[in-house]
């Protein structure tokens, strides 16, 4: 079972419970790991050895690993304070919005952050697409959360820039942009 990260407010505790419940359903989604080319190294095993540029590709990922680990750990350790700041500001910005709606948006943002974290760690943006966007996007469209999400992401990105170094933001940004742009865009389902 999933272990929720301890949250500073009761809102967050509730969110964590919801997340673990929801995610157990989606555990059987497509699992693609790492850069697709690296994941396929075993495919050709018996036919040939890897070419120098294929090994180089793996080497590049390995070389970036210490920084990715630092980014990931930093994000993980600072998530509670980041999210608490976002919750506080969001509640102030949308005093008329129902707690239910805010919870929904915050829950999804939390998930988004965690999937982006995983994505940067294993260098695989398809994680964000298949394990997050594919099912959150239709939901957010159904609940019409765009206005709240838009503000939420602005607040979140501000907090993230304070918590992470520019280099670390460089690792996080691609998947974060992918997720946020994906959720905010108005295009119909593909």
């Amino acid at each position: 079972m999933l272990m929720p990260v301890p949250m500073p407010s009761r809102l967050m505790i509730f969110l964590a419970y919801l997340i673990s419940l929801l995610l157990s359903i989606f555990l059987l989604c497509v699992l693609k790991i790492m850069h697709p080319q690296i994941a396929s190294v075993f495919d050709e095993a018996e036919n040939r050895y890897l070419k120098p540029d294929e090994i180089k590709l793996i080497g590049q990922y390995v070389a970036s690993m210490p920084e990715r680990l630092d980014t990931y750990r930093n994000l993980r350790d600072r998530e509670p304070e980041i999210m608490q700041a976002v919750v506080d500001q969001l509640e102030a910005e949308f005093p008329q919005e129902s707690e239910e709606n805010l919870e929904r948006c915050l829950k999804n943002a939390l998930l988004m952050l965690r999937y982006c974290g995983l994505s940067l760690l294993v260098n695989d943006e398809t994680i964000v697409q298949h394990r997050f966007l594919d099912w959150v996007k239709p939901l957010s469209q159904a609940y019409e959360t765009k206005a709240v999400d838009s503000k939420l992401y602005r607040l979140l990105n501000q907090q993230l820039s304070k918590a992470l170094s520019p280099k670390q933001m460089g690792y996080l940004s691609p998947s974060l942009s992918l997720a946020q742009d994906g959720l905010l865009s108005q295009t119909a389902k593909r």
């Binding site: 272990m3 990260v5 997340i19």
Partner: peptide, 21 residues
């Protein structure tokens, strides 16, 4: 590779601990 895949599955919706990394 298989460790990353396992990790990816197990940390679904949460973060990996230092031990897991």
């Amino acid at each position: 590779l298989s460790q990353i895949e396992r990790l990816s599955r197990e940390v679904d919706g949460r973060y990996a601990s230092d031990a897991e990394l």
